[in-house]
């Protein structure tokens, strides 16, 4: 089952990569460097999915006290941190040639960095506790606070980078994006999600084995 998922993810990644370099057109303004987008955007979407699962696993554990929920949380948190790191690094590499800087304290960059740090802390905490039940309890508490904190972090950084000035608010509207580019993004998003699910299954299985060895 997990093996099949792995092959499916690999296949999707190959197709995604092919689409990113073969099918998607050279972007009109940015040129080929825009192809980093097919890595950057799927990575961040996958990271959001991962952290939502950490939250679900944390809540589930506190309610039911079943270690299965805790395995879900840790199995999602590890790849979540990995994908967040990839998001930051790929975004940075994309930013240098286009905006002219590796890093800027922009609202979205900053809140992604904070997200990364919060869940690195979460994983560090897990590493410091050996008993599965105690580890699961502490991690769940930190996971719940981390999730509840995300909107607050978002608004604090958003306002922090704002200059106050009355201005007309322009309503949001869908951004124009060429169809082949959107399609390539979609394919890569699916591929990353499959890869994440594969990692999730493998990591959860490892957590299960560790518990059975310890107990």
């Amino acid at each position: 089952m997990t093996r099949a998922l792995g092959w499916l993810a690999a296949l999707a990644l190959v197709i995604g990569l092919g689409a990113a370099f073969g099918y998607a057109p050279r972007e009109a303004v940015q040129g080929n460097v825009q192809r980093i987008m097919y890595l950057h955007v799927p990575a961040v979407l996958t990271a959001y999915l991962a952290f939502a699962l950490v939250f679900a696993g944390s809540l589930g554990y506190l309610f039911t006290r079943r270690l299965g929920w805790d395995r879900l949380a840790v199995a999602a948190a590890e790849p979540g941190v990995l994908f967040t790191g990839l998001t930051i690094v790929s975004g940075s590499i994309w930013g240098k040639p286009t905006w002219g800087t590796w890093w800027t304290w922009d609202a979205r960059l900053t809140s992604t960095a904070v997200l990364f740090l919060v869940y690195v802390g979460y994983l560090l905490l897990r590493g410091m506790v050996d008993e599965p039940d105690r580890r699961a309890r502490y991690a769940a508490v930190v996971g719940i606070l981390g999730a509840a904190n995300i909107p607050i972090v978002h608004f604090s950084v958003k306002w922090w980078r704002a200059l106050h000035q009355p201005s007309t608010i322009l309503g949001p509207e869908p951004s124009p994006i060429a169809a082949p580019i959107a399609l390539t993004l979609l394919v890569n998003w699916i591929a990353f999600t499959l890869l994440f699910l594969y990692f999730l299954a493998r990591r959860a299985e490892i957590a299960r084995l560790e518990e059975s060895h310890a107990g």
Binding site: G31, N32, V89
Partner: peptide, 26 residues
Amino acid sequence: MPDNWGYVFAAYGLAVIALGAYWRRL
């Protein structure tokens, strides 16, 4: 507009290394 292929390959290369390393660790 220069193409900056170096940046593109650096980004994808790092991603392959990171994902591959995690896969091997698992």
